[in-house]
Computed example of a mutant assay.
Amino acid sequence: MSPADLVQLAGPISSENGPGLFLRIIVIASFVGVGLLVWAIARASRDGDKREAAREQARAEAAEQS
């Protein structure tokens, strides 16, 4: 799509000339999406660390029993 087509599509969204409101919505949605992605990756990493610690503890306990 050309920039002119995008401006024409964004026209009904905003009463201003140009794609001002439309681009603001896209930028805000992008920041929210990136924030959610960072949160999900951080949570997965934290949960992975907990699982790894539990495995190490189980291995240590199994080694003590043998």
Rank of each mutant, 00 (worst) to 15 (best):
S66Q: 15
W39A: 09
A40K: 11
G11F: 05
A40E: 08
G33A: 03
I28F: 10
D49K: 08
A40T: 07
F31C: 12
L36M: 08
L9H: 10
F31S: 07
W39D: 02
F22R: 04
A62N: 09
A40S: 07
L6H: 14
A42P: 00
E16I: 04
E52S: 10
I26K: 11
S14Y: 03
Q8E: 15
L21G: 00
A53S: 12
A54Y: 06
V7N: 11
Q65K: 15
L37N: 06
S30E: 09
G33Y: 01
M1L: 12
A63W: 09
A40M: 04
A10T: 09
G18P: 03
S30G: 10
E56A: 13
N17G: 09
E56L: 12
A40F: 08
P19C: 13
L6D: 09
A60D: 11
E64T: 09
P12V: 10
Q8V: 09
I41D: 00
S15N: 10
A29W: 05
V27E: 14
A58M: 11
L36S: 02
A60G: 01
R51W: 02
V34W: 04
A53Q: 12
W39N: 03
I28A: 14
V32S: 02
R43S: 03
V7E: 15
P19G: 04
F31E: 13
D5Y: 10
A60T: 13
G35S: 13
P12K: 08
A44C: 03
A60Y: 05
E64H: 10
V27S: 07
A44R: 07
P3T: 12
S66W: 12
R24L: 08
R24D: 13
I26Q: 07
A54S: 12
A54T: 06
A54W: 05
F22C: 11
L6A: 12
A4R: 14
S2C: 06
I13H: 04
K50I: 14
A44Y: 02
E52T: 12
E56S: 07
W39K: 09
L9T: 02
Q65D: 12
A44M: 04
I13E: 05
A54L: 09
G48M: 01
P19E: 14
A62W: 08
E16T: 09
S45V: 08
A60F: 11
S14L: 02
E52Y: 06
S15I: 08
L6K: 14
Q65T: 15
A58P: 01
A62S: 11
I13P: 00
Q8R: 15
M1C: 05
Q57D: 15
R51S: 03
G35L: 11
A63F: 12
L23I: 13
L9G: 01
L23P: 00
S2V: 05
K50Y: 03
E64D: 14
S30H: 11
L9M: 15
